[in-house]
């Protein structure tokens, strides 16, 4: 074998070995890498109240209650992953993107009653990008209600422009 060939195989072997090592390490620590726990994970094994966790899921439609205690807004809402739901209490200003049906990540800890006291709420927007007019048109035609989940298959709307949306809404 020539020197260059040997070097090539050496490089390939090293990269493969390193990749395998990294892959094994990552899969071993997989549960520590996740950014948040889902409500069903929390329900299956309730974390102790003194541990700060991040709870992620969708805000249940109709579950949001906003109150004001003096200057501070007090919010309560339910977060679900489709299988379980956890009620979150949060004192403070919710992010702009917060709405029913939106994915959020709440940072805080469990309370003895099975609720969740959040010290911070982050909004998680999904990978869907659509103009306002298209979103309105989808809602008007009854194809999608953002309160109840992600938008329909992108192929059905991603060629739709703001102009199309306007003409089709005028026609309907």
């Amino acid at each position: 074998m020539k020197r260059k060939t040997r070097r090539l195989w050496l490089v390939i072997a090293c990269v493969a070995g390193l990749g395998a090592a990294a892959g094994l390490t990552l899969s071993a620590f997989s549960s520590n890498i996740v950014f948040f726990m889902t409500p069903s994970q929390v329900a299956a094994k309730v974390p102790p109240a003194d541990r700060t966790i991040r709870l992620g899921g969708m805000v249940v439609a109709g579950s949001v209650h906003r109150e004001r205690h003096g200057e501070t807004p007090v919010n309560s809402f339910e977060v679900t992953d489709g299988q379980a739901a956890v009620t979150v209490q949060f004192e403070g200003i919710l992010p702009d993107l917060f709405r029913e049906g939106q994915s959020v990540v709440a940072v805080g800890s469990m309370t003895p009653g099975g609720g969740f006291a959040a010290s911070e709420v982050l909004a998680k927007h999904d990978e869907t990008y659509m103009p306002k007019e298209v979103a309105e048109e989808l809602q008007k035609s009854g194809k999608w209600d953002p309160k109840f989940g992600p938008p329909p298959n992108a192929a059905s709307w991603n060629a739709m422009t703001a102009k199309d949306a306007k003409t089709s809404s005028r026609g309907s």
Binding site: V34, T38, E127, N158
Partner: peptide, 25 residues
């Protein structure tokens, strides 16, 4: 894809239609 993250998944993939309006794509 492997872990749940705050960052959203890719909008443009090799396998599926982009989940993005063509006016932004």
């Amino acid at each position: 894809q492997w872990w749940n993250t705050l960052h959203q998944p890719d909008s443009i993939t090799l396998t599926g239609a982009p989940t993005m309006s063509h006016a932004m794509l």
